[in-house]
Design a protein around this nucleic acid. Structure first.
Length: 614
RNA sequence: GUCCCGGUAGCUCAGUUGGAUAGAGCAGCGGACUUCUAAUCCGCAGGUCGUGCGUUCGAAUCGCACCCGGGAUGCCA
């Protein structure tokens, strides 16, 4: 694979040099190339001599000398000499400005260094995870946008990606809502039009009606307890039991394919998914109807899965339940309850089997809350034991990874909730961000039309929320703060959008002034700000690959912020259109254009909307 | 009890494979607008990297013990 990353190029040279200097070590020694932290030491350094000194039993400075003697980097860097060696054995490398121009040229002409993978994998990303009859709330934000960004990262690398939303559309809670709707229908009170708010109300009502203990508790708190009240309580409990029994009957009817029940269920499904998919679109994620693979779609397979596990001795009986024991984990994976019912682990096993053996996944990524870590360890272990994680005809199992994420916290450090303790509706959260962005746009972009300002506010608000989430280390909790994420200074979505706007604005201005852009003009890197920017740009391909590999979008966020910061400094110090000479202007225009392409490509890969003006 | 995750500047966070003097942003202080969009840039100040011991030429990073916070923990999903 062609590379324009100085770290990779120097790495290859050093690896060869080490092999020549120490044949007994060969090519497997790590060249340990990294960017120098301080300009006085040059641009890059190799730390290979120290561990190598230990390995061959020699003084690390001597080792450094031996390596330097075997390496020729004169085509891209200043020649290595005795003076390149510093401290305990650091080898410092200073690039030639001309080499930098050549590398930028190469990056420019190869899809910014990321051509499609030669051997594409199939990657299934489990994301979003909504439930029927419930509004998307703040808890779904991370599963949706982190999952979508991980999917985009693999797509950008040329892999085949299948997004799947494991919709919670089956089981008793759904049957309870279905029962409510059937009651309304029987009484002729079912409205012709239902929205998700209606269903959400019915969901809560059904939950309350079936939760006898809680109702009884509320009753006692309100009135105190005596003999008469206790009679009242048992009546409430009996009522709840009847509601629950009714729901269970509906569940059985649903599972056995009763047409009338199924029709009502379908209506709940359609109403929920219509609103959730609209929210996914507003979030600028590529999640559509075809990506829904709800729990209900596995219902028919569960009995077969359990029978298979039992027949092959993978599962065993324990206290009346059927479990799969997993090495290294104390708690076994329960696949069948003692009453014969299946559990969510059963569904997940069926899902892994389908994803690996039918869809052909080489990698399945689960973008799900960190609290489910144990569950996924069990399920992954059980699936691997059962052979469900191995593609048909393959010898090694595919990779199953849990991309766990932390909780969104409020200012008080507690999970983010409304004042009344309810979870925050995602729609409300987005509206708030957009309206705050709108207020800023009103103040600053007075020359734009109303429609344009609304469009910009929408993009800025959404980008702010998404970037705030994606830029944090996935597994950590983070504190949600509108003011901070919408600030236009610092590591925020709006700052990145603004940098791109300045680039686009510069090209509009160039066009207006009749300054042509020559995509083949010679690049020359002279100023320190130009060099700093150039070095950042060359890091792009590797950053995307490592973010995908580690399933960590925040690596790409941090990188893009560095690019924008380097560009802002460059922009401040190095005039482009008013450059001192024609060749310098042409060179800088190319640098700016390439910066714009890397930035736009990166933002697209993260899934952030961009704007032309703001 | 056991297991998992976290603890870095007043606040919010980065820190890649163990490398030279631990970095950003915000807030604070001081500068830069006859502009290529100042929604920006530059400078100053701010640290017992939770604590201790160990491994190493070298530890925020690896190991052990402990402290603090969060989470999970067999028949809900």
């Amino acid at each position: 694979m062609q590379t324009f990353d100085p770290i990779e190029i120097l790495g290859a040279r050093f690896r060869e040099g080490i092999a020549r200097a120490y044949p007994q070590v060969g090519m497997d020694a790590d060249p340990l190339i990294s960017a120098s932290r301080q300009a006085q030491f040059g641009d890059f350094q190799s730390n290979a001599a120290m561990p190598l000194g230990k390995r061959v039993g020699a003084n690390p400075r001597e080792v450094a000398r031996a390596i330097v003697a075997q390496i020729d980097v004169s085509d891209i860097a200043e020649p290595l000499t005795e003076r390149s060696i510093a401290g305990p054995g650091f080898i410092n490398v200073r690039l030639q400005p001309k080499a930098l121009a050549t590398l930028l040229d190469g990056l420019d002409h190869t899809e910014v260094g990321l051509p499609a993978a030669e051997h594409p994998m199939t990657v299934v990303v489990d994301l979003c995870g909504v439930n029927l009859a419930k509004q998307m709330h703040v808890g779904h934000l991370r599963a949706t946008i982190i999952g979508d960004t991980i999917a985009r990262l693999y797509e950008r690398l040329g892999h085949r990606v299948v997004r799947q939303s494991h919709v919670g559309d089956w089981g008793l809670p759904i049957a309870m809502v279905t029962a409510k709707l059937l009651d309304l229908e029987a009484r002729g009170e079912l409205p012709a039009r239902l929205d998700l708010d209606d269903l959400n109300r019915l969901y809560k009502l059904a939950q309350a009606e079936c939760a006898g203990e809680q109702r009884a508790l509320a009753f006692v708190r309100r009135f105190g307890s005596n003999a008469k009240i206790e009679a009242e309580l048992s009546e409430i409990d009996a009522e709840a039991d009847e509601h629950l029994a009714h729901a269970k009957r509906v569940l059985v009817a649903l599972q056995s394919g009763d047409a009338k029940v199924r029709a009502v269920w379908q209506r709940i499904y359609d109403v929920t998914m219509r609103e959730c998919l609209r929210m996914c679109a507003r979030l600028h994620t590529l999640i559509t109807d075809e990506h829904s693979a709800g729990e209900s779609t596995y219902a028919e397979e569960l009995a077969g899965v359990v029978a298979d596990l039992a027949a092959r001795g993978v599962a065993e009986e324990s206290d009346g339940a059927l479990v799969v024991r997993v090495e290294g984990i104390e708690e076994p994976c329960l696949v069948r309850k003692s009453d014969g019912g299946f559990l969510y682990a059963t569904t997940d096993l069926a899902a892994i089997r389908r994803r690996v053996q039918q869809i052909g996944a080489d990698l399945v990524v689960y973008c799900v809350d960190a609290r489910q870590s144990l569950h996924f360890k069990q399920v992954f272990g059980a699936a691997t034991r059962a052979g469900y994680a191995t593609k048909l005809g393959a010898t090694e199992p595919s990779h199953l990874k849990h991309a766990a994420f932390g909780t969104i916290l409020g200012e008080d450090g507690r999970p983010f909730k409304t004042r009344s303790g309810e979870s925050v509706k995602l729609a409300d959260l987005l509206d708030e961000a957009v309206s705050r962005a709108r207020a800023e746009v009103e103040q600053r972009s007075i020359d734009l039309s109303d429609a344009e300002r609304q469009e910009i506010a929408e993009a800025v608000g959404i980008a702010a929320i998404k970037y705030a989430d994606l830029s944090n280390d996935r597994v950590k909790d983070y504190v949600f703060n509108f003011d901070r994420m919408l600030a236009f200074e610092g590591n925020t979505g709006p700052y990145l959008l603004y940098a791109l706007v300045r680039i686009r604005s510069l090209f509009r201005k160039a066009e207006a002034e009749g300054i042509p852009f020559d995509p083949h003009a010679a690049i020359s890197i002279e100023q320190p700000e130009e060099k700093a920017l150039a070095l950042e740009l060359l890091r792009y391909p590797k950053t995307v690959r490592s973010a995908a590999e580690a399933l960590e979008p925040h690596r790409l966020c941090g990188y893009l912020y560095e690019v924008c910061a380097a560009y802002s400094t460059f922009y401040d110090r190095c005039h482009v259109l008013k450059a001192e000479s024609e060749p310098v202007r042409a060179s800088r225009l190319r640098l700016v254009e390439l910066t714009g392409r890397v930035l736009a490509d990166g933002l697209q890969t993260l899934g952030l909307p961009t704007v032309e003006r703001m």
